[in-house]
Amino acid sequence: MQDLIRRYGAGLTAIICLLVFFWLAILVVVPNITLFESSFRPYLPVTEIGGPKDVYSLDNYLKVFSGQVEVSPLGFTFLIPVHVLTFFLTIWYSVVVTFLCFLIAYPMAYYMAKVAKPSSVPTLLLLIFVPLWVSEVLRAFAWWIILAFKGPLNSLLLALGLIDAPVRWITGYDAVVIGLIYTYVLFMLFPVYNAVSSLDTNQIEAAEDLGAPWWKIHWRIVLPHAKPGVASGSVMVFMLSAGSLLVPSILGSTTSQWFTQTINQWFNDALDWNTASAYAFILLFLCTVFVALAMWAFKVKLSDIAK
């Protein structure tokens, strides 16, 4: 603080601090606290707000358990509350997206950090960045067109003779997963790229010199070194995927439902902000718990990610 004042003067420092405070308090903390508080109150007509029925309860949270649906994964048939099912599917497909993002980003990151000529890396980065200049909505719609039943992807594959009949891509969660990977893969790429770049190339050469085949070099030397980067990329991709509304809304099929869509339905269709808030906090809380468990399982420390 002393340092800030000395460097920028008291006036500018005060303005900076006030702006940061406004950002954090007014735009983040207060709305969240408001929603959190309202998530414990029933959805009431305006006239009854503040009346005898307006009491705190967990009713909104318990609504996730209402409405059973029958599922039969792996031959077992059982009943599960529909919103709980949506939640688990959201988590599961977010994990799939995260894993696939890693599979795509790791070779790219390794290539850029250790194989490509340093002079060509800025060009590669630019090529990767250019699609980001297009709005997320447009990119999702672009994928919707690409993946359409009579769209370019099917035409291409048919023309190449790789498939005999058009594939229905936008079915189940397939298109959602593809769209989410496209949208969030860079959040995996950059942390992994940074982590791999910081690895001393001599270590890779030393491993090779000692006789290690390429996969062993990656498994024992590069991946362990890049683990913090992979972890921070995974947390970002997972959280962003689980919290994405746009991509599942546009690329979702009749048989897909993302938990954020359920939240959105409570907000915008049912206009029940109280239940919607409760659902939003369920998602936030359980995702955080899930990430914490995953970090514990993979022996990643919070300080590793912050690097």
């Binding site: 001393d200 001599n202 270590q203 050469e205 010199d209 030397i221």
Partner: peptide, 12 residues
């Protein structure tokens, strides 16, 4: 077997 100038031991 090569011994590197910076040794390149595996720190992990």
């Amino acid at each position: 077997a090569l011994i590197f100038q910076n040794l390149a031991l595996f720190p992990l």
